[in-house]
Design a protein around this nucleic acid. Structure first.
Lengths: 202, 202
DNA sequence: TCTTGATTTGACCAACTGGTCAAACTCACG
DNA sequence: CGTGAGTTTGACCAGTTGGTCAAATCAAGA
């Protein structure tokens, strides 16, 4: 392991390559289903070389998850109390849907982790995530109090947005097996738009 | 391996115990994350004994999946064109939600498989599942044509029902991390009821 | 009771996997 | 250049895992 001073150009390049490769592999096979050799091969490095940059398979996974959690929650973070309620919510939904389309690996990385009980990010869920969600449901509740949007259970509203949008990334194979050639995201965009407009219009 | 004649009482008992144990283990850790030893221990058998009843780990997994697919799709199968459209759809949704509550292991078993690209049930998806869904979306479309329910993209309507209901089983940890003590399924039932009533009322 | 097929298991094996290590190589910089 | 830190790797290791096998045990019908 090199000194922890300003990382070399090589260090930056290789660390990035490793994380990129790990995202591919972990998102496709889950933690247990992925091997260090696979990740190393995908990153174009030998296994010992990969382990020169990260101390363990676990460390790569953790680095990935914690690095991406912020990205993953950014759209919800951007939900702005001062904007127009319906527009804010719809734009949040569309942003999530775009993320499912453009960052499906990230979505599946989290899905893999969650479906197996989130052994490695359980803490982040009940601290960071819960805090953010509490904050934003409070905003939703105030909008409902003001009659700006229809009153529904705010937590389940958020769950439903997550479920609906991430479904297209996480269960992509199933969606495509059924839709065949049709592009899922076109129809999905229209569908969620009408769904939430009808639900939330007071 | 015993003769394939009418299975012994012992055979029935042990095969059932193995599948039950495998459901526990596979749904919690995924295929690759589960070991034959784990399943054997959970079933109260030695590993060689377990492999006396199933030729391989893969075979157990396949037997589980194909055995449960029917159960899993039963509610959609039950959607009846001759019933009242809104009631039929809502009752389908509630049945799916109950399955998430009562059969979370089954839900996670499929979720694990799907999120990793469904390597073992891809065929069943594009044949059996697609056929069933095509059939039922045709029913939905006819209802829409008759003005019985609002017109929305029928495939995405079904996807949304799957996503919403299964979310509570598959991402249980996340839901509970956020809701803390509140029972997820109580709020969820009310939420989806209003959601789909508003969406589908013409 | 005896016999035969069904059931069970301890011992074992080969492949795989995460991780180590010393030696070799490369690169930036004085 | 030369040199020392940074980088790379072949060889290796111990633990795990899916699966095998011959031998032992059990169960039920004749």
């Amino acid at each position: 392991m090199p000194k922890d001073r300003t990382p070399t150009r090589i260090q930056q390049k290789n660390r990035a390559a490793i994380l990129e490769a790990a995202l591919n592999v972990f998102s496709a096979h889950g933690f247990r289903g992925s091997t260090v050799d696979q990740i190393a091969a995908e990153a174009g490095l030998s296994k010992p070389n990969l382990l020169y940059y990260f101390p363990s398979k676990e460390a790569i996974h953790t680095a990935l998850l914690s690095g991406l959690l912020e990205v993953w929650l950014a759209p919800l973070h951007a939900l702005n109390e001062d904007g127009d309620p319906m527009e804010e919510i719809l734009s949040y939904i569309h942003r999530k849907l775009e993320m499912s389309r453009d960052l499906p690996r990230e979505s599946r990385l989290f899905a893999n982790e969650l479906v197996q009980g989130a052994p490695r990010i359980h803490d982040a869920l009940s601290s960071d995530l819960k805090k953010l969600v509490d904050e934003k449901t409070a905003v939703l509740t105030r909008w409902m109090d003001q009659g700006k949007i229809a009153r529904v259970h705010p937590y389940h509203l958020i769950f439903s947005i997550w479920a609906l949008t991430q479904h297209y990334a996480d269960f992509d194979v199933q969606v495509r097996a059924i839709l065949k050639d049709e592009d899922p995201f076109e129809g999905a965009g229209l569908f969620v738009e009408t769904l939430y407009r009808k639900l939330l219009t007071p």
